[in-house]
Design a protein around this nucleic acid. Structure first.
Lengths: 180, 180
DNA sequence: AACTTTTCGTCAGACGTATGTCAATTATGC
DNA sequence: GCATAATTGACATACGTCTGACGAAAAGTT
């Protein structure tokens, strides 16, 4: 039907399609959640902190697929809105433990139906069989790339950083040699 | 096998999966193209300008799925590296026409094999049948959401802005009322 | 115990992405 | 023709995302 474009090679790239699909999903999410002023990253953080209160920022990053800096930004914004509380871990003063405030719990409850509507709007446009198929293929791709988030391992401290962990500093400092 | 996590509801959200898959694809792209210092947005811009020299920034934005501000940033960076040329359209002084420089064309040629390797690495991990299936499902989702980029319409000026066009200012200025 | 390495969170910088505003320019309606 | 509206690209702002560097603190080594 549509004439083949010179740009089809670009538009069929997986990265391009992922980005475009994410644009669509993000736009719908923002639309549904506009009244609550919550982005999808913030929603993820609220959700994780609801189910796992007391985690620190690094763990939150691993659980949400965000790096340390992004987590720092996201939780700063949430903290400024008094949606969560932070306090240093008494056993390790580097760690800041996180927990939703009452207002945070309340907001999450209010946002959840809107987020669910967004989810539906993104997928409902596909025939039911294709919905599961698409989600399954995406999970499958992530699995084979070792990019599935293993919440158990992270929370048990058995986490082994993979290729797509952005939470930690990569090769550390070059470790200035003493010998030479 | 893996114990069901309390977070599966989060990890199965389409937006979350799109974002995570995009993270994977973007990381692989950056890795393969590191020596050229080219991001995927920049690659898209180079590619479009190669096949359609002379377009202006708005059209480039529509063709790449970027809004005006992002296009402005991307082309500024490319221009600073002398990879493209800009000159005002003589018939419409608002428009800046864009074209790759010789260096830009050369860089695109050099980057293309690396970008192709990245594409392969993202998809090759899936069995062949699943690759097409996944790509097809993504395109299908975009089509049904009216988010497929119609290069012909854009270039012919027959473009009708859809829900997922970020290139233009939305409802324009509120048009200050004269009456009241 | 002293030194080194690693880890946590912050900051600065870069790029990506979208909104909103603005000046200049063009198109349109009367 | 002239006032109004729409378009283009600039800019400012905001948020997201990652890298690299850093200080503080903890863990590991010798």
């Amino acid at each position: 039907m549509t004439a083949p474009s010179k740009l089809d090679d670009l538009y069929c790239r997986p990265g391009f399609l992922f980005k475009r699909c994410h644009q669509v999903a993000a736009a719908i999410f923002i639309e549904e959640c506009r009244e609550f002023n919550v982005t999808s990253s913030q929603f993820s953080a609220l959700y994780v902190l609801h189910t796992h209160p007391g985690v620190d920022q690094i763990a939150l990053g691993r659980l949400t697929g965000l790096d340390r800096s992004t987590v720092g930004l996201v939780i700063r914004l949430l903290e400024e809105r008094k949606l969560l509380e932070r306090w240093p871990n008494p056993h390790d003063k580097r760690r800041m433990q996180l927990k939703l405030s009452a207002a945070g719990e309340r907001l999450l409850e209010e946002v959840t139906p809107a987020a669910e509507r967004a989810r539906q709007r993104v997928l409902a446009i596909l025939p039911p069989s294709q919905r599961d198929e698409l989600m399954q293929l995406l999970v499958n791709l992530l699995e084979r790339h070792g990019a599935v988030i293993d919440a158990e391992a992270i929370l048990e401290g058995k986490h082994r950083p993979g290729r797509f962990d952005f939470s930690e500093a990569k090769p550390a400092r070059p470790a200035r040699r003493r010998g030479a």
